[in-house]
Nucleic acid binder design. Sequence first.
RNA 1: GGGCUCGUGGUCUAGAUGGUCAUGACACCGCCUUUACACGGCGGAGGUCCUGAGUUCGAAUCUCAGCGGGCCCA
Length: 876
Amino acid sequence: MTGSEIPKEYNAAEIEIKWMNEWDLSMYHFDWADKTRPQYIIDTPPPYPTGNFHIGNSLNWCYIDFVARYKRMRGFNVMFPQGWDCHGLPTEVKVEETHHITKNQVPRAEFRKMCEEMTEGNIIKMRNTMKRLGFSNDWSNEFITMEPSYYVKTQRSFLKMHEKNYVYHEEHPVNWCPRCETAIALAEVEYRENVTKLNFLYFSLAEDENEKVHIATSRPELLCACAAVAVNPDDARYGKFVGKELVVPIFGQKVPVIPDVDVDAEFGTGAVMICTFGDKQDIRWTKTHNLKITKAIDRNGKMTAAAGKYEGMSIPECKANIIEDLRCNGFLYEQQDLDQNVGLCWRCKTPIEILSEMQWFVKVNPEEILSGADQIEWIPEYMKVRLENWTSTMEWDWCISRQRIFATPIPVWYCNKCNEVLIADDSWLPIDPTQEKPPVACPKCGANDFHGETDVFDTWMDSSLTALHVSGWDSDHELRLPTQLRPQGHDIIRTWAFYTILRAKAIENKIPWDTIMINGMVLGPDGHKMSKSLGNIISPEDVLIEHSADAFRQWGALGGSVGSDVMFRWNDVVSASRLIQKLWNIYRFSLSNMDGFGTKDAASFDVSKLKQIDYWLLSKLNGLIDDVTGAMEVYKFDDAFKAIRVFAWDVLADNYIELVKGRLYGADADGKAAARFTLFTAVSTLTKILAPFTPFLAEEMYSRIGEGSVHQQGWPAKIDGLPADAEEKGELIKGITSAIRCYKSDNKMALNAPLKKIEIYNAVVDAADISNTVTSPTDLIEGAPEFESVPVEVKPNMGMLGPMFRDKAGAVIGALKALPPKEAEEMKAAGKVVVTAGGEQIELGADSIEIKKEMVSAGREIEILHVDEAVIVIVK
RNA sequence: GGGCUCGUGGUCUAGAUGGUCAUGACACCGCCUUUACACGGCGGAGGUCCUGAGUUCGAAUCUCAGCGGGCCCA
């Protein structure tokens, strides 16, 4: 191979697209039949198919890909599956926008179809980005949660959990948008500052209507749903009322006065009416005090029959009427302005209500989840605390029903005759109860008249099943749980990680993964979270257009340690691109000097024929293999890649190649062969060790030096038979060369300007490589030079003196530093250092100090440099 | 308000188990076009290690408090 065949410029765009099209991706497939290699299954978290594989996903996928490629090279049977978590509100909203409809205007099945079509298009776009970024996904194990083949498992898992008594059906408060007629998640509630009226009312005591309690409320329209009045137990004003009953104005129901420490005695009158449900605090009180639930508002935001004569009114209408009636009847005695934070639907800005609805729940067993979390390795470790805190403060069980359409149907029917709940039989799955009737009669009353459950599963029910799915649960394959790795962001520990552990424990009583690797968030170049409003969003495509996938991936590796938030910096990508070009130049130089030397020649090469600096380079290379391997084992991709960068640029390019050029260009056949072997070994090792990080560059490099794909090669092995002093000698050669270069720079000389002569004393090293590199005749002279050596500084040994003298150490160190250097040297030579500190004479051993010495040139036209024990004389 | 996390030259960052001159990258300045590379090489300048107190002979490193940023959750 000659240099002329290798282009000077590394054309990343061209080369990356070439390999993307040429690669046979089946080389990344997991082999279910293989019993020899250990399995390494990754529970890839399926992204939501927005159509846009964003930079946060990309960082996460970089981490996964580094691990997947590394593990393959280490001989594991790796599965890096790709899934798509399709169901959810954002797609429903997008479909409504695109088709200018609301979901209730079209049949459910039709709306679902629209959502599916949009999702399919989005998945195609995202797949393309992923392939372009060089991720080594196993596409034979792709899963799409909206497909019956996947959601049948969600439904089956529901049946399994029901059998095991994890599932129940109960009335429960939900955030409800009366306009959209759906429950919405807490995350979908937006808050706005608002001013409302705080109304001061009289409630009279049931046993004595002349005795009044003053109540302040902002929600008088909920009077009909008032279930109790709460006061602070320490509030002296109300102590006498506790345990007695009050009569609610207008509606006349009797409600108890109850004590509760959560009541703020300072707010309003200090007496609070608890209703179904004015706010979240009402939910807590209703639950803790087991209060009666009265539904005053229906799903359309209208007052129910419970509101008596106000039935059918909208909430604001009812509020105005009730206030008027309270005033007329003398119940209202004052109104004040009140600042409040009102919860709005994020889509239509309608104030949300808290309604009580029948919902399906999954029991949360904190002990089970915590013990599961303990058996999992957390990377980084401190992330486990987040799960523990969340788990131990869970107030409620997991509500798995949602009032949506594009989601996995809950396979349940209700008998119209007797209200019996009929849960689907396993053999009927997959099934949509809104589209199909059950094939049996009601087991309780024998009727054949059902209505299907219109609520659907929370999307987490699909996505918390991935660990089971990818490890072969409910398939023809044997179950391979636990999987080895779950990579995911720290923002979803409380949801995704939590639910997945819960499900694996509930269904198979196993942990889902051996290890969970948590990635941080990607911040914009300004250090803030990327957002449309800040305008700091950068997409992977932006980076691909200007640079390359390999450069982007380096940013992923170097941006920060796993778990920490990573800023996107163009700088990192620019410097990554430069490294790629630098690596290419190293590669180009090396191959152009090989003259046919290749893998076979390297295999039969006699290592004992190498020169000192060759040994040094190979020893450094061994160190690199150790460092990168060690870092990869603990998911420190930044450390791993930094080590590669330092080796390639600093060690190999700036030092070894410069030192070895003389031999490569020279006539000495042995020296040349040694250099070729060393260079070839370094380049081929670099190619393999780069493969997990920069798969395109590595493949391009490997294509000229090896057979097949670099991504099917084994991880590089260390070179045996290096002398023990390899690094020491090499460092000295490097140090001497560097000192001479530094001398030239200080004296404003060109780097290649020849010096008359260089003499190296007191260093047994190869002078030939040095001589070539500094372009000057160089003599190696045994022993010390005949110049006067002058001690110039005393350096006390802190590590030894500190513990020895403790509080007196400061004085001793000071006294040692103050010694005349010449005197100190004599004492050290005699093996005994005596010093006076704090009026006391102290005797120390020779190792208590180091003496720094310099040579003086004694009038000759020379310059003297010091590198460790070696002395370099430059003759001008 | 709670939990977790971070705070090191202009910017970003390394710095387990406390020890002599605090790492590197980018930017900056000077010199150098030497047959891999000027997207390069060599050299240089630049730091109250957030603040305060404490532990210690000695703290960027350990403890406490405060200030400030980030994420998640109320």
